[in-house]
Design a protein around this nucleic acid. Structure first.
Lengths: 197, 197
DNA sequence: CGGAAAATTGAGTACTCTCAACCAGCGTGG
DNA sequence: CCACGCTGGTTGAGAGTACTCAATTTTCCG
């Protein structure tokens, strides 16, 4: 899926990770969302006939593709489903808002810690992972593009988080050593995820 | 409307400007969206029972408030209205995505130029203003909080845009002197606004 | 006219970036 | 089996954009 395309189907992520990104004219990239198994990747693009961003897979992914026309019909027929998808989109939107805050007003360390908290919690909530150790699908370059930092600074910031005894992270395995302190370091409050209480 | 509240109605902005913001623990603020007359300010908060951000008015505003229950009923009854609101939310969401890019990957000058372009174009599209001169509802402090910069740096960056002959801006009047060059300076492409073609 | 809010200026600081080199792990192929 | 090359991660040094603090001027309103 490329920016500018006219999508005709949307994807439900069954297995594996994906992300959405936007490319800038100067060649820079901003990752605008990360998707874990069980999530719709592309409802937005699907409903707005013109794609305003593009989607990439992080690992080998299995997706279930649904034709948009079918989805629209389904929503028309079942208000319950329509509402569920609506909710999905709204939560998506809420996460974008938090990301604006994250890249806009937090320093590097807080920014990265916040993203780690978010991913860990979403994995927990979706059942895609649990315990103190999680599969972490991003390379440092991608983490940099998600947080609006450079790869070099991302690397140094991760080291600082490790030095503080908050996490370990290597070869796609993230271990949260001290959840409370990581949450604090990340200025993290999960309210915006709107997980059921 | 405060973060953490349980909203029961949502507001259609009839006259005046408003914005949504999130406050950080350290007292910083990030403005996450700006609303011009004719827009729903709060569909998001309305549908997610718990507010994850809060809303402020920029100028004296007139709003039409709609009870959420009524809205839900209306959506249930009329698929056309449901779809329209859905679209409204999706475009909202698209703008958030672009803001993530804006604060994440653009430098100060580009960032501010981009925001000016966006506001100008949205005013045009909504009929809330036109011509090279627009009502500009933000103070420099607010512009800073919308772009993730400091007020001082925002001030200097605006001066630089003025020196370049791209805009004039004073007492809430923004004049775009050279639309093409401003658009270029702001790395701006209006696709994400999803305005009808 | 006076006071508050908004805008502007100056000087010094620092966080993050750039550029560049180097290391480690790993799959491929000779 | 080891060399090779590639991707991802790490380190160093220096530069620069944006920040902080603080004072001053201008504008806005009551």
């Amino acid at each position: 899926m490329q920016e500018g395309d006219y999508p005709t189907e949307c994807a439900l992520l069954v297995k594996g990770f994906a992300y959405r990104q936007k490319l800038l004219h100067n060649g820079a990239r901003q990752i605008i969302s990360i998707h874990i198994p069980g999530e719709f990747v592309d409802l937005q693009n699907s409903m707005l006939s013109l794609a305003d961003h593009n989607v990439q897979s992080l690992s080998r992914c299995e997706t279930a593709t649904v034709p948009i026309a079918a989805l629209q019909a389904l929503m028309k027929r079942s208000p319950a489903i329509a509402k569920a998808m609506w909710l999905d989109t709204l939560i998506d939107s809420s996460i974008f808002r938090e990301w604006v805050v994250n890249v806009g007003r937090r320093d590097a360390k807080t920014r990265i810690a916040h993203l780690l908290c978010e991913l860990a919690l979403r994995m927990e909530a979706s059942g895609a992972g649990s315990g103190p150790t999680y599969h972490f699908p991003l390379t440092q370059d991608q983490l940099a593009d998600a947080t609006g930092l450079t790869p070099v600074h991302t690397n140094r910031t991760l080291q600082s988080l490790r030095r503080d005894g908050l996490i370990t992270l290597s070869s796609n395995a993230l271990t949260v050593l001290d959840w409370e302190r990581l949450r604090e370091a990340g200025d993290f409050n999960e309210r915006y995820l709107h997980h059921a209480v």
